[in-house]
């Protein structure tokens, strides 16, 4: 299959998705009803909406490279954007990728299981940097337009 075929396939699949979304949408009240059902059960678990897809600590190459002490993490969000983050001692920096909306509304936080957290915004292309005394279990929390996506806990 050529790249062009693959592109055409993706485009057709998108057309099909749009068709189903437009012509066979869920009943108007369904989402609200399901939220009510689940809310009534009062589950307290926090479900991860920011999924870790790569972690340099788990790559054999990290040992070979040897020079960098930074741990590089890459997350995908259910909403479609991604977060690349690098933790190097107390320096945490990275970039929010594939977010087409307003960068001004974005907040990146590093939270620790012990309580302290550090928060910063991103610049116009999504870069962020913060200084954090992060030890033990940490996770990233990205707030965009008031919606928070949290990652799983990671040991640093």
């Amino acid at each position: 299959m050529t790249d062009k075929d693959a592109e055409q396939d993706v485009a057709l699949l998108e057309e099909l998705r749009d068709m189903w979304v437009t012509y066979d949408p869920p009943p108007p009240g369904l989402t609200a009803a399901m939220i009510a059902i689940v809310a009534a059960a009062d589950l307290d678990e926090e479900w991860e909406l920011l999924t870790l897809v790569s972690d340099s600590a788990h790559e054999p190459a990290a040992q070979v490279r040897g020079l960098s002490t930074a741990r590089v993490l890459y997350f995908n969000a259910a909403a479609g954007w991604s977060l690349e983050a690098e933790i190097d001692g107390d320096q945490v920096k990275g970039q929010l990728l594939d977010h087409s909306g307003d960068m001004g509304s974005v907040e990146i936080a590093l939270e620790t299981s012990e309580g302290p957290s550090w928060t910063t915004g991103v610049d116009e292309v999504g870069f962020f940097a913060l200084q954090a005394d992060a030890t033990g279990s940490v996770r990233f929390a990205v707030t965009i337009d008031g919606r928070v996506a949290r990652s799983r806990w990671l040991d640093v």
Binding site: V21, I35, L49, R147
Partner: peptide, 28 residues
Amino acid sequence: MDELVAAMTPVLWHVVRAYGHDREAAED
């Protein structure tokens, strides 16, 4: 949790409808 339910309910709807159920059965 609400965010998860709001994000996933429409996806589940289309997945279930893929099996050819009518709308009422799909809701169930």
